[in-house]
Amino acid sequence: MENSATFRFYEELNDFLPREKRKITFEYLFNGGPSIKDAIEANGIPHVEVDLILVNGRSVGFDYTLKGGDCVSVYPIFEFLDITSVCLLRESPLREMKFILDTHLGKLAKYLRLTGFDTIYRNDYEDKEIIRISLAEHRVILTRDIGMLKVKSVIYGYFVRSQIPREQILELLKHFDLYRLIKPFSRCIKCNGKLTEVEKEEIVDQLEPLTKKYFNRFFRCTGCQSIFWEGSHLNRMKELISEIEKRKESKNQGIG
């Protein structure tokens, strides 16, 4: 016997819906008694992007069995709004933002590390390994593969909308409200290790003649021991940080 329920998805969850279903209440037809998680994903929404489900005004978990006549409201992640008392989907909200990226987001990984975020990336990771590390280390999976975000065991994840790396980092900063956590040039873009300032005299024997001549401020990675200095890429990154700050100001003023 076919039953029906009404669904309403809020904010960026509408990105996954066809235009005719965005930002409205619509009817959902189903047979049997599917879980609310299965019904949500049948509508194209990865469960990891959902933080709160209300059925007939009551908060429910992913295992709730959908019934005919139910009125369902689905809300996106509230990373910096504590909804612990009403959210039944996860044991606790994620507070420390750490990431692991799929193989298609290498340039985004560099941007995240340059802005100071703990970011794991390798171009040979398989989906199963990404999911395993995410669960073990409580990392948010960033991906352009919706299918990976629908894997049942995945808890934290986000579908990156933009395909342009520079826009992707701005998208993430806005979505997760990360502006106050930015620490430029504090992580190694090669291995994700932390950078510490080092005296020139300590590493002078590792420098090329022109680097030794024209630069005086140096940083060393505590992981791979790579040496960094304020080279030609610095101005480009300062431009990005400046753009980030402008976006932050616009957000605070309610612009855009």
Rank of each mutant, 00 (worst) to 15 (best):
R217H: 12
S162I: 02
R161T: 03
S162D: 14
S250D: 15
A136C: 00
F30E: 04
V204S: 14
G116E: 04
K98V: 02
F9S: 07
H138A: 09
G254P: 11
E91Y: 10
V160R: 00
G256D: 15
Y28N: 08
I203T: 10
L172K: 08
I45H: 05
K107D: 10
R180I: 02
Y75T: 00
T222R: 15
E230Q: 12
Q206V: 06
E20M: 10
I164A: 02
G69R: 10
I155W: 00
A42M: 09
N235P: 01
T119N: 00
Y158S: 00
Q253R: 15
K183C: 09
A136K: 13
E2C: 00
Y158E: 05
D82I: 09
E230K: 13
K98A: 07
S250P: 00
G231P: 04
K190T: 06
S73Y: 11
Y75V: 09
T84N: 13
G147L: 03
I244Q: 08
L195V: 06
K150S: 03
I182H: 03
I36S: 07
E27P: 06
I36M: 10
E20F: 14
I255D: 08
L210T: 14
E230N: 12
E91H: 13
G69E: 07
K212H: 04
L181Y: 13
K194P: 01
E199Y: 08
D102A: 07
E20W: 07
V86Q: 12
R90S: 04
T103Q: 07
A39D: 01
L170A: 12
D63K: 14
K23P: 00
L101W: 02
Y28P: 02
V151G: 03
R139A: 03
V204W: 02
V86L: 13
G69Q: 08
S250A: 15
E2R: 08
I36C: 07
S4G: 03
E243P: 07
W229Y: 13
M97G: 03
G157T: 04
V154D: 06
N3K: 14
M97D: 00
N123W: 00
V72Y: 04
L105Y: 05
N192G: 11
E201C: 02
D82Q: 09
N123V: 02
R180D: 12
E249N: 15
S250L: 15
